[in-house]
Design a binder for these strands. Sequence first.
DNA 1: GTCTATAACCAGATAGAC
DNA 2: GTCTATCTGGTTATAGAC
Lengths: 177, 177
Amino acid sequence: MDVFAEQGYSGATISEIERRVGLAAGTGSLYRHFPSKEALLREAVEYEVTRCRTEAESARAGLPHVGDPVERQVQRFRQALQDIQRFDRLFRLMLNDGARVPELADAVWTAVGRRVERRATSEEDVLDAIALTSLGGYHLFSLMQGRPFNGVPEEQLIRLLAELSNPGVAGRQPAAS
Amino acid sequence: MDVFAEQGYSGATISEIERRVGLAAGTGSLYRHFPSKEALLREAVEYEVTRCRTEAESARAGLPHVGDPVERQVQRFRQALQDIQRFDRLFRLMLNDGARVPELADAVWTAVGRRVERRATSEEDVLDAIALTSLGGYHLFSLMQGRPFNGVPEEQLIRLLAELSNPGVAGRQPAAS
DNA sequence: GTCTATAACCAGATAGAC
DNA sequence: GTCTATCTGGTTATAGAC
């Protein structure tokens, strides 16, 4: 998964993968374990998907109950960001070689935040989309910049996002007219 | 640029590039125009960067002045999203092969939204980051899903983002204690 | 289960005819 | 400026010794 996510499918060489798992590079020893490069990719993706799902689930299991609605949102968004970070390698693979593993997209989106099929226009839907896209964009942009995006710390982004997402508490009013 | 953005640097073949520009594939005719694949990439990136910058600038030039602060934000964000869409191929290249063209990152970030060097923690900074990351995440997630992310239309996302970004107007109050 | 040797292939790149 | 032909090296993949 590391090599596929870093180099993309075509950039990843069997030799490099052999090297990273401790096999002599360029010997084809990998083919005693997997029939082809494509088969290896599919098995790697499948393994990674279940690994991420399991981790995400157990992370949520040990979470204390929070009463305050804003704090509850903070907790939700922190989990969402951690999900995104966990799925990082799958996200990158989806962007680079999405067509190569068609079932990947479905697996990721159902795991991260269930995919909405209909046209979603309610304020709640859009608010939810803002939070998810902001966290996802923050993760990807931070990756590209090699540090927290534009110098904004993770926790601050989450807090403000949580405050904005609580219309009931903050009393934000819809646009005039 | 199309081939590099779609397939990544290693996935892009000279033959495919030749095919798309109308040369016979596999003949190496491309090498009468560029000395190497790497040189082609660098020139393609340079060309694309100036193209995007120019387009972004002229799009902003023809914009009417807007008085209402929320509407002004809507206009700003719409431009930002269009910038991101314009820079799409460069973004993808940055994610896939960022290390290959080091100067690419700087060029893109100064063009899209100037890069903030210091640690940015003021509410204004974070609000700005939310807008940018949300628009960027929306673009990338929509790409991955192959349609508007989670069924949320572009314009709705922009409007709500604009409303949220105007603390003065909406009277949102900071979180209690 | 790993390595040696090697096959088959394809990609990047070059020289030269037209 | 384009194509033919070709070289070279690297990549996937296989057969067989240990």
